[in-house]
Computed example of a mutant assay.
Amino acid sequence: MTRVIVIGATGHVGTYLVPALVEAGHDVVAISRGVAEPYRSHAAWRAVERLQMDREALEKAGTFGRDILALKPDIVIDMICFTMPSAEMLVNALTGHVDHFLHTGTIWTHGTAVAVPTPEEAPKHPFGDYGIAKAEIENFLLRSAHRENFPATIIHPGHIVGPGWAPLNPQGNFNTAVFSQLARGEALLLPNFGLETVHHVHAEDVARLFMAAIASRSTAIGESFHAVSDKALTLRGYAESMARWFGHQPKLDFLPYAQWAETQSEEDAKATWEHIARSPNCSMDKARRLLGFTPRHSSLDAVTEAVSWLIDKGQVEGPRETV
């Protein structure tokens, strides 16, 4: 039985990934910092070994890599690595001792796109601390794979969506009041002409791509794969579709970003800028070609599932209608 260690196992993707690993016959160790439960219950969690490990504290002590190695993994899936020293500690400890190492990246490693949809091999010009750091980690892991035979695969999710948390909304931020506005049939104000893009992915599809990479280990090692829906959404198209889903004709207004930002909270305006400045639109052709993987959920399918959950929890107004 293959022993799989999942670091950051109770997050969005881990909620779906851990049960899938158990059902595939793996011996799973789920590591999390605290006692948080996954976003959805599943009987498979009863077969999982749950461990609490404070990664930041153990990295400061210089032991985290050795602590993971001590668990005797065959496969390590790292969902929460954000710095080069963190990546180096694990790679140095695990080199020569694991069959497969899978890292969670981000489509923000691309920065701004030149041509869309963007393939994984497109030249990357990331900006912002997060995107730059994740691109640096990707380069390190791929070098380690190609030059030192470290068995690394990188999965780059888009805007992860699913029941249990607020999805990126049609303004490009996470304010759930935007969905309530659309539910009431009110006009929604969008930045610019609403033609910037966002690219969602259902957490289940990210988990499925990890499983596909594990199943095609020899093909996946030394490669990076996008994990997004088949098509990105423009802010305008997203807003119009959600208005119709709520049973209303779309009512949209537009302002140049600087003026639009003055009508929003500082937090929402900043989040919107972070997303529309990148306007991701990524290709899934590589995962389809090399791993035989196709996402099950469109962006709108994933979002409406999440919004339905928010409605059921009283966090967004209803009623709703399916397109």
Rank of each mutant, 00 (worst) to 15 (best):
G8A: 00
G8E: 06
A9W: 09
H12I: 01
G14D: 12
A20G: 10
L21G: 10
V22N: 13
A24N: 12
H26Y: 08
H42L: 06
H42K: 07
V48G: 11
E49F: 05
Q52E: 13
M53H: 03
D54Q: 04
L58T: 03
L58F: 02
G62L: 04
D74A: 05
V76E: 06
M79V: 03
T83C: 00
P85T: 13
A87I: 10
F101R: 09
F101E: 13
L102H: 00
A115G: 04
A115P: 09
A122Q: 13
K124D: 11
F127V: 07
D129F: 09
K134R: 06
I137K: 15
F140T: 12
A145Y: 01
H159Y: 10
N169V: 00
Q181P: 02
A183V: 01
L190D: 02
P191E: 12
F210Q: 01
M211I: 09
A213S: 07
S216Y: 00
S218T: 12
T219D: 02
I221A: 06
G222W: 03
E223R: 15
D230S: 09
G237M: 08
Y238L: 11
P256F: 09
A258P: 11
A258I: 05
A258H: 09
A261N: 04
A261R: 11
E267K: 14
A269I: 06
A271M: 07
H275A: 10
I276H: 04
A277L: 09
R278H: 13
R278N: 05
S283I: 05
M284P: 00
D285L: 08
R289Q: 15
L290D: 02
R296H: 14
W309T: 00
K313P: 01
